[in-house]
């Protein structure tokens, strides 16, 4: 009996401690959680932690912004959570892979969420994507790149390295063959250095400079339709697409490159909360301290505000069925 009383006391103490701890936990107003759809390390996680250091200062009440990794299925797990179960009071922000937007168009059954239901706060980057070959390669021009029989490296078939190379190959009838299965860009670069493959597509210009690839790789062309910016001197590969439908389909495939590292609020978040977060984002990217910190960390900013991202997403998801079908064929 005495044992039971002691145990009950212990349980009571534990419950009291627990409730105290829970009641003492910061409320939603004091903490904002920035959930990133990838594991620790890597570009998405680094960007999330960088934003977490700065965003709170621009939100009302200056909340602490804590990063949580919600790793799974290339951030689709988090995207689905944001479209469904996450709180809609502004206490949770997500950072997901924008290529999911294209996937919702080309394969809606697989992704299972509506990109337009999410509330886009803004995006940090829009680095151009390029194709490159090893410096030891004999390929030096776009014509040689498109006409030569050689091997290009790629990761999995859902990766940007495969999607971009397939887009070039199918839309421009290039003769290179794709080798899939490499684990990331470092392994592809190593395979190029040891002469197993000639090059690859789908890396950003930022990565090209940041990883020192410029020492061993040669740029062949870019994958965008822009006529200005830091890649204006590079040949625009997709400009060679003559067919109108193919051009539109290619535009759809590369559409997500315009809003890299996007921040989103869950579906169903009230408009006033969305506006507050968008204003905070705009203030953050205009803050000289943020810009200077980004330079120090070698993060190349090319931000877009929430309204612009929302418009791009709507444009992509409103593509005609014919364009969507052709886009799916081009990246097969």
């Amino acid at each position: 009996m005495a044992d039971s009383i002691h145990l009950l006391r212990a349980l009571g103490l534990a419950i009291a401690l627990g409730l105290t701890a829970i009641s003492g936990a910061p409320s939603a107003a004091e903490t904002v959680t920035l959930k990133v759809g990838y594991g620790p390390g890597g570009g998405f996680d680094t960007a999330a932690r960088f934003v977490a250091e700065h965003l709170g200062a621009h939100l009302p009440g200056h909340p602490e912004v804590a990063v949580q990794n919600v790793d799974g299925a290339g951030s689709l797990k988090l995207a689905r959570m944001l479209a469904g179960t996450e709180p809609k009071d502004g206490s949770v922000i997500g950072l997901i892979n924008p290529s999911l937007v294209i996937a919702t168009v080309t394969d809606p059954g697989l992704t299972g969420f509506d990109a337009n239901s999410l509330n886009w706060i803004g995006s940090l980057s829009a680095s151009p994507t390029v194709c490159l070959v090893g410096k030891a390669s004999a390929i030096a021009s776009v014509d040689e790149f498109l006409g030569g029989e050689f091997l290009l490296g790629a990761s999995g078939k859902a990766s940007s390295s495969y999607v971009m190379a397939a887009l070039v190959k199918n839309s421009l009838h290039a003769r290179f063959r794709l080798v899939t299965g490499f684990k990331g860009s470092a392994e592809i670069n190593l395979a190029i250095e040891r002469g197993e493959i000639e090059g690859w597509c789908g890396t950003s210009l930022t990565s090209y400079h940041a990883t020192g690839a410029e020492r061993t790789m040669r740029l062949i062309g870019r994958l965008d339709f822009s006529t200005s910016g830091e890649t204006a001197d590079l040949p625009a590969l997709l400009d060679r697409i003559a067919d109108g439908v193919d051009r539109d389909a290619a535009g759809l495939v590369i559409g997500y490159l315009a809003f890299q590292l996007p921040l989103v609020l869950p579906a169903g978040t009230p408009p006033d909360i969305v506006d507050t977060h968008r204003r905070a984002f705009d203030a953050m990217i205009a803050d000289p301290a943020f810009v200077e910190a980004a330079l120090r960390r070698d993060i190349r900013l090319s931000p877009k505000n929430g309204a612009s991202v929302e418009a791009i997403v709507r444009g992509l998801t409103d593509a005609s069925p014919a364009i969507v079908a052709r886009a799916a064929e081009l990246i097969r």
Binding site: L13, A14, L17, I22
Partner: peptide
Amino acid sequence: GLVVAVPI
């Protein structure tokens, strides 16, 4: 929650 579950 964690704090209640562990001691119990």
